[in-house]
Lab assay of single mutants.
Amino acid sequence: GSLMYASIFGNVSAIIQRLYSGTARYHTQMLRVREFIRFHQIPNPLRQRLEEYFQHAWSYTNGIDMNAVLKGFPECLQADICLHLNRSLLQHCKPFRGATKGCLRALAMKFKTTHAPPGDTLVHAGDLLTALYFISRGSIEILRGDVVVAILGKNDIFGEPLNLYARPGKSNGDVRALTYCDLHKIHRDDLLEVLDMYPEFSDHFWSSLEITFNLRDTNMIPGSPGSTELEGGFSRQRKRKLSFRRRTDKDTEQPGEVSALGPGRAGAGPSSRGRPGGPWGESPSSGPSSPESSEDEGPGRSSSPLRLVPFSSPRPPGEPPGGEPLMEDCEKSSDTCNPLSGAFSGVSNIFSFWGDSRGRQYQELPRCPAPTPSLLNIPLSSPGRRPRGDVESRLDALQRQLNRLETRLSADMATVLQLLQRQMTLVPPAYSAVTTPGPGPTSTSPLLPVSPLPTLTLDSLSQVSQFMACEELPPGAPELPQEGPTRRLSLPGQLGALTSQPLHRHGSDPGS
């Protein structure tokens, strides 16, 4: 009898404990919600809404976190579960008819179910419309201010047509639940991603989709105040780019002037030289400038040598048109050559190039014969006009050509200096018209024969001689050997007369 009593008592207590286990969990969670309300000092109306929603959600799901349970299964099984949970929507909604099984599984994985109690606001006026909503159960109302403009029910759709707008718009009203509602919502990016994977279904979906109420604000059109608020930074940046392009296009129409201050000032006329910023005076940081632009901040801005204009002085008759350009485009679109090309026009420029290279940067340069637009006047290309890779490749080509020119210049200078040193070592320090008596009659020769300089066969020296023939050397430049009979510069000019005159010897006659 005691054994029977113990078994009955144990079973009854276990049954009672299981009955009250759900209630215990409910009270535990309710205590957490109330502690949250007390800690954050939530006001009474919002506090009442929180408690009511918790009670309804507990009775609806029995305190089970559906998302946590669903995430515990593998992905393939999750797709089947989501397809079952959203079967009513996918079967009865017209846009989803005719979709393949794979497309429906992908869509079912992207849908999220939302449960809303009465009085809950789903979308506020001015919120971004980031999702498309399908009503599965219940009814909602749409308000503009305090005026109800629409009441939607089961199988209705609200949001915005995503295929017509590249960016999400703003809501033009509040969406509030009238009863307990079940909503299926899919985010904008998720829907577009699935439709991109199934393009054959995309056309059918957009053609058959009928949005019951379009929440997009109709005033959000390009150029409206609301649109400016939504895309303020983007609009200002776009206007700045367009104004920069218009100014650079105007600059290219004036090829007669070359400016070292950047493309923003290349198009300024002579009357605007004294102004601080020219056409860019209202925004000094709008356009890029070269490193020399920092010198323009000092006094005497109108007389600054940074602004270059072609000189009108005539060229000498024998002067060549100019050196070879550094870039391939210089032959086609440049009416002034790079300062480095002028360094190779003569030997005198070679000796004085490194010492006063900055001073020569603004000297007169030889002109190319074609009066085409200036290379320095070409505006900086924006990322939309020329690819970045093209600019980098041009810079690399320019750097390689500069290296080759520097190597060639160093070799030419070394060769010229070597020839000058050899000339100085071969010439005796001094010569006299009267020579010392020699031991015999073989001493009648006034000077030792001097062998002429070897013929220069280097390509670089031939180019130097060509430049010497075309360029007029300055007075202080050293002379180079030329073709024809060679003669030492330090010898007297009348050596031929010395050989014809008898030598005057000093000596005593033994017979006297």
Rank of each mutant, 00 (worst) to 15 (best):
D127E: 14
L129S: 01
L129P: 01
T130S: 07
T130W: 13
A131Q: 10
L132C: 03
Y133N: 04
Y133K: 01
I135T: 01
S136R: 09
S136G: 10
R137M: 04
G138E: 01
G138L: 02
G138V: 02
G138S: 01
S139W: 08
I140A: 03
I140D: 01
E141F: 01
E141R: 03
I142A: 02
I142L: 01
R144C: 03
D146V: 03
D146Q: 08
V147W: 08
V147Y: 08
V148F: 01
V148K: 05
V149W: 04
I151E: 04
I151Q: 12
I151P: 01
L152N: 01
L152Q: 01
L152K: 01
G153W: 03
K154I: 04
N155I: 02
N155M: 05
D156T: 03
F158V: 05
G159N: 01
G159C: 01
E160C: 01
L164W: 11
A166F: 09
A166Y: 09
R167C: 08
R167E: 10
G169E: 01
K170I: 11
S171A: 10
G173H: 12
D174R: 07
V175H: 01
R176M: 05
C181S: 08
C181I: 08
D182T: 13
D182V: 11
K185F: 12
K185V: 13
K185Y: 08
H187I: 04
H187V: 09
H187E: 11
R188Q: 04
R188H: 08
D190F: 01
L191Y: 02
L191T: 03
E193R: 07
E193C: 09
V194A: 04
L195T: 05
Y198E: 03
F201V: 06
S202G: 12
S202T: 08
S202C: 13
D203C: 10
H204T: 10
F205M: 03
F205E: 01
W206H: 06
S208R: 10
S208P: 01
L209K: 01
E210M: 05
T212W: 01
F213T: 03
N214E: 02
L215P: 01
R216H: 13
T218C: 14
T218P: 12
N219C: 13
M220C: 12
M220R: 12
P222F: 05
P222G: 11
P222R: 12
S224D: 13
T228N: 11
T228K: 11
E229F: 08
E229H: 11
E229A: 11
L230A: 11
E231W: 06
G232W: 10
G233I: 13
G233D: 11
G233C: 12
F234Y: 11
S235G: 10
R236G: 12
Q237L: 09
Q237E: 10
Q237T: 12
Q237G: 11
R238I: 13
R240Q: 07
K241G: 11
L242S: 11
L242V: 10
S243R: 12
S243F: 07
R245G: 12
R246D: 10
R246F: 08
R247L: 10
R247A: 10
R247D: 12
D249R: 10
D249G: 08
K250R: 07
K250C: 11
K250L: 11
D251P: 13
E253C: 13
Q254V: 07
P255T: 10
G256A: 10
E257M: 11
S259A: 10
S259F: 09
L261D: 07
G262P: 08
G262W: 09
P263R: 10
P263Q: 11
G264I: 10
G264L: 13
A266P: 06
A266G: 12
G267Y: 11
A268Q: 10
A268K: 07
A268S: 10
G269E: 12
G269N: 14
G269Q: 15
P270K: 03
P270R: 08
S272D: 13
R273A: 10
G281R: 05
G281W: 06
P284Y: 12
P284M: 15
S285V: 11
S286A: 06
P288S: 07
S290W: 11
P291S: 13
E295K: 05
E295M: 04
D296N: 15
D296H: 13
E297G: 11
E297F: 15
P299K: 15
P299S: 12
P299F: 04
R301F: 10
R301N: 15
S302G: 07
S303A: 12
S304A: 14
P305L: 09
P305I: 15
P305Y: 13
L308N: 13
P310H: 03
S312L: 11
S313A: 11
P314V: 08
P314W: 15
P316G: 08
E319M: 14
P320K: 10
P321Q: 09
G323M: 06
G323R: 09
E324W: 06
P325T: 01
M327P: 08
M327C: 06
E328N: 04
D329F: 11
D329M: 06
D329G: 12
T336A: 11
T336W: 06
P339T: 10
S341H: 13
S341W: 11
F344V: 06
S345A: 08
G346Y: 09
V347D: 07
I350R: 10
F351W: 13
S352I: 03
F353W: 12
G355Q: 07
G355A: 08
G355L: 06
D356E: 14
D356N: 05
S357R: 09
S357M: 01
R358H: 06
R360Y: 09
Q361S: 12
Q361C: 08
Q361A: 12
Q363K: 05
E364D: 09
L365A: 11
L365R: 07
L365F: 05
L365V: 12
L365N: 13
L365D: 05
R367N: 11
R367P: 08
C368V: 09
T372D: 07
T372V: 10
T372P: 14
S374T: 01
L375S: 07
L375W: 11
L375V: 06
L376C: 07
L376E: 09
N377T: 10
I378P: 01
I378W: 04
L380R: 13
L380D: 11
L380S: 11
S382Y: 04
S382N: 15
S382A: 06
P383A: 10
R385M: 15
R386I: 13
R388K: 11
S393E: 13
L398V: 08
R400P: 01
Q401Y: 09
L402F: 10
N403A: 04
N403P: 03
N403H: 12
T407K: 14
R408C: 08
R408Q: 08
A411L: 13
D412T: 01
D412A: 03
A414M: 11
A414R: 08
V416S: 04
V416C: 15
Q418K: 06
L419A: 10
R422E: 04
Q423F: 08
M424P: 10
M424N: 11
V427M: 01
V427E: 05
P428A: 15
P429G: 10
A430T: 10
A430R: 09
Y431A: 14
S432P: 06
V434E: 13
T436L: 08
G440E: 07
G440Q: 15
G440N: 04
P441E: 12
T442E: 11
S443W: 14
T444F: 07
S445H: 08
S445A: 09
S445R: 08
P446V: 11
L448I: 06
L448K: 10
L448A: 09
P449F: 04
P449V: 09
P449Q: 06
S451N: 13
P452M: 09
T455R: 10
T455C: 12
T455N: 12
T455H: 14
T457Q: 10
T457Y: 06
T457A: 09
T457P: 12
S460E: 14
S462G: 09
Q463R: 10
S465N: 12
S465F: 03
Q466V: 06
F467W: 11
C470V: 10
E472Y: 07
P475H: 12
G476M: 15
G476T: 08
P478Y: 14
P478S: 08
L480G: 11
L480C: 09
P481Y: 04
P481K: 15
Q482T: 10
L491K: 09
L491V: 09
Q494C: 13
Q494V: 10
A497R: 10
L498F: 09
T499M: 14
T499Y: 12
P502A: 12
L503T: 07
H504I: 13
G507V: 09
S508R: 08
S508I: 07
D509A: 09
G511H: 12
